[in-house]
Design a protein around this nucleic acid. Structure first.
Lengths: 246, 246
DNA sequence: CGAACCTTTGAGCGTCCTCAACCTGCGTGG
DNA sequence: CCACGCAGGTTGAGGACGCTCAAAGGTTCG
């Protein structure tokens, strides 16, 4: 199955619907602050303009499971507008700039535009596909494989947005973030990172991830970017929500 | 937060749309046979009428991660109609009776009925919420907690359909199924089951799960049925798809 | 009645965890 | 400007949880 190289610059864009501009709000968050809190009733929808966030759940024993990282351009909190309350928290990992949309406005826009509704449906389905792959990752792969898989996923997603080059990408995550996403301890993540570095596969140092040998690491991790469904993306531009397809 | 006891018998039902009856097909599957194969292009949608199935992904090294179990009344393969191909396989765990709907028919029905589209959206979102909880389970809970959590989830879902009583339920799964759902080995599942039995918490023997002390096991597992969003259910009746809300 | 599948138990081992110490870089305040 | 505190990274030691391999008993079904 040969795959064409992605050409992020040559999108054919079809607008799918507009969101009433009245209640849009540009907001900033500093690292560690919460955009959405688990259980929050009238949670908003955000569009990440800059910075990274992550969604997570806390456990009674103090453990934290990070479910996903959100990168610039990503929507977050979409599922919250369906259930009326958030079933997870979202926290800023870096300084974050985000556009906030009132849940009711988004709901109305979806109701008025079948094409927008369809786009949201696909966005949620794509999201679930990612979470599924994370489940496979955590459930059935070794520490090395998990870590490699996560870094490869981030790389693939960032590359599509022009935020990564062939070699690697800037990564603001701490080893604690990686640990809580992978179901490992931070100490063990550190050791696995060292191991991957010594094996000349990936290097994660000083906020920068560099792949020494991306082919062999993809094989090690069993990584196939197909589950990301990157050929289409729900995006945000001005007062509109766009869907872009290659 | 007190929760009303569920009353499965007193649904108020609103029909949401009809599926063209032409291409519906009643089918039977025997244990171990596949309803949907990963990568399959024109995968159908099924409604489980009787029996259990499970969705899973295989890994290059031979490992298997079960993502979810489907119980009578559940829809399966909904995400396949969005992407056009299945990103996971679905296998019958027991003898299964299912109603098969052509993907194109379902797509058309969704396109023609915004309310049906909304119901499907909610069904997919609910599905994702379940998978998310499975991710938390596998990523951050001990073997005992995972197993207890899974059994409690199955119990809660079956109870809503009248397929379980207060004490427990009939469970056709093998210890291999449990292991592959929980990211454990079958041998270890066996030991954990013994441990739970000796601690007088749950007993799983001869295809029957019985909770000895459901309160303390819920606390052990950190189980809260809220994520199942059981107050509404997408259901199938005759030639219609119904959404039921309490 | 045999075969296949599932469960159960033992033994030994490896991955990953916890606890703990120490180092670095960085921002803040005296 | 330096002192300090703090967050994050690194490394060691010891132990727990869960794995693999192996063998034996039970069930089910053709």
């Amino acid at each position: 199955m040969t795959r064409e190289p992605s050409k992020p610059a040559s999108f054919a864009q079809n607008d799918l619907g507009t969101i009433g501009g009245a209640h849009r709000l540009q907001r900033r968050f500093s690292p560690g602050s919460e955009l959405i809190h688990e259980g929050q009733l009238k949670a908003s929808v955000f569009v990440l303009l800059g910075g990274w966030t992550f969604s997570y759940k806390m456990l009674p024993n103090g453990g934290r499971q990070i479910m996903d990282f959100q990168l610039p351009g990503d929507f977050l909190g979409l599922r919250g507008i369906i259930f009326g309350s958030a079933d997870h928290s979202i926290e800023a990992a870096t300084h974050v700039e985000a556009s906030q949309l009132a849940a009711s406005d988004v709901r109305d826009a979806i109701g008025n535009s079948p094409r927008l509704a369809s786009a949201v449906l696909r966005a949620i389905a794509r999201n679930e596909a990612m979470v599924l792959e994370h489940l496979v990752n955590v459930g059935r792969r070794s520490g090395e494989e998990r870590l490699a898989h996560l870094l490869l996923e981030l790389h693939a997603r960032l590359k599509l947005r022009g935020l990564a080059d062939k070699k690697g990408f800037d990564c603001p995550l701490t080893q604690f973030h990686l640990a809580d996403a992978l179901g490992l301890s931070a100490v063990h993540v550190n050791r696995v990172l060292r191991h991957l570095r010594e094996a000349a596969l990936v290097t994660f140092q000083n906020g920068r991830v560099d792949f020494d040998n991306i082919d062999s690491i993809q094989q090690l991790a069993g990584f196939d970017a197909a589950y990301l469904h990157q050929n289409e993306t729900l995006r945000h531009s001005g007062s509109e929500i766009l869907i872009s397809m290659q």
